[in-house]
Design a protein around this nucleic acid. Structure first.
Lengths: 174, 174
DNA sequence: CCTAGATGGTTTCAGTTGATACTAGTTCCG
DNA sequence: CGGAACTAGTATCAACTGAAACCATCTAGG
């Protein structure tokens, strides 16, 4: 009853190979999707709390502001592509920001279905206020890394993303 | 009314410096929290779909199975620490897995509040089936990277996570 | 023109998430 | 012993998410 339900080896007859690249055994701590998820969650939580507490912004709202500040006015569709967020998410973020008068929408001249979003003066001011804070958080996160490592990690993340997108497109090779 | 709401410079009087480490301007594409979130979402979506389609498992369920296979039986509390998931999430994942007879719970002898979770034979078999697939996905994601880069990115992610956790603990320096 | 389909955005709704409240059991301490 | 304070785990509920339905407008073909 209280005996072992399932007896299996804690260590499957194998010492921990220090830095084997072609790992053939699953070790959660070294499993990339796990590492990525945990790191991303930790960073997101930190950032989300900062923006929420200080400016009452969600991360999608903040991302939308960032791309509008960076590229100027654009349609919701363009913002979706630019931010890699869902169109529903963009729609809601835009709504909230319009309500707060941080973003304005003007009808798209050529196409009556669409419209263009742009930052208001207040939106620009808010962006100017947040940007330094955002950069400070990034700097704090990266403070332990050498400049070369910073560039490396950003580049590697882009490549991982590209690989994931590519694999998602494929019919999941069977 | 329909005039330009906010006129502002597309390029704030500054050419794009190629690889400046101490970036003083916010560029979303090079902003770490953004890169991390986008990469993590892309990978998670890929993996989640694979596990869901083939085994009917969510990611939390899979993670719980993985740690139980790796470390053996443990309490829900230990699993929370080990998986970096919320305790509610673990509670629900365990419930679902118990229902599917992949996980068994036995009362904790010393402590009546708690209990121990362990994989059943069926759970072990499922783990044995999934693990190679999980490793194959990881290999596919990492296929473009040199072995040294693989080790580097994993190590860097750990450091970023540690930094984020450390910063979260602090009172958000004002 | 006028209808059939495509497209841009919004709304709806079902499922998931995580903060909070709650229950049961344990430990500390007089 | 007998509670007060604490801990492990579960349940509840409000908020968030994204898939699918929807509405308005645009474009193409007859």
């Amino acid at each position: 009853m209280s005996a072992e339900i399932s007896a299996f080896p804690k260590r499957p007859a194998r010492d921990p190979a220090p830095d084997e690249a072609g790992e053939d055994r699953l070790v959660l701590d070294d499993y990339l999707p796990y590492r990525l998820s945990v790191a991303s969650n930790a960073v997101s939580r930190l950032i989300a709390r900062a923006y929420e507490d200080r400016f009452g912004l969600t991360i999608p709202q903040w991302r939308l502001i960032a791309v509008l500040a960076e590229d100027g006015a654009m349609t919701p569709g363009a913002a979706v592509a630019r931010t890699v967020l869902d169109k529903v998410t963009i729609s809601r973020a835009a709504q909230a920001l319009v309500k707060r008068r941080l973003v304005a929408r003007v009808a798209h001249e050529g196409d009556g279905r669409s419209h263009r979003l742009s930052l208001t003066e207040a939106g620009l001011r808010l962006h100017a206020e947040i940007a330094p804070l955002a950069l400070a958080y990034e700097a704090a996160l990266l403070s332990g890394l050498a400049p070369g490592e910073v560039a490396a990690v950003k580049a590697l993340l882009k490549r991982l993303e590209a690989a994931a997108v590519r694999l998602s497109g494929e019919p999941a090779a069977d």
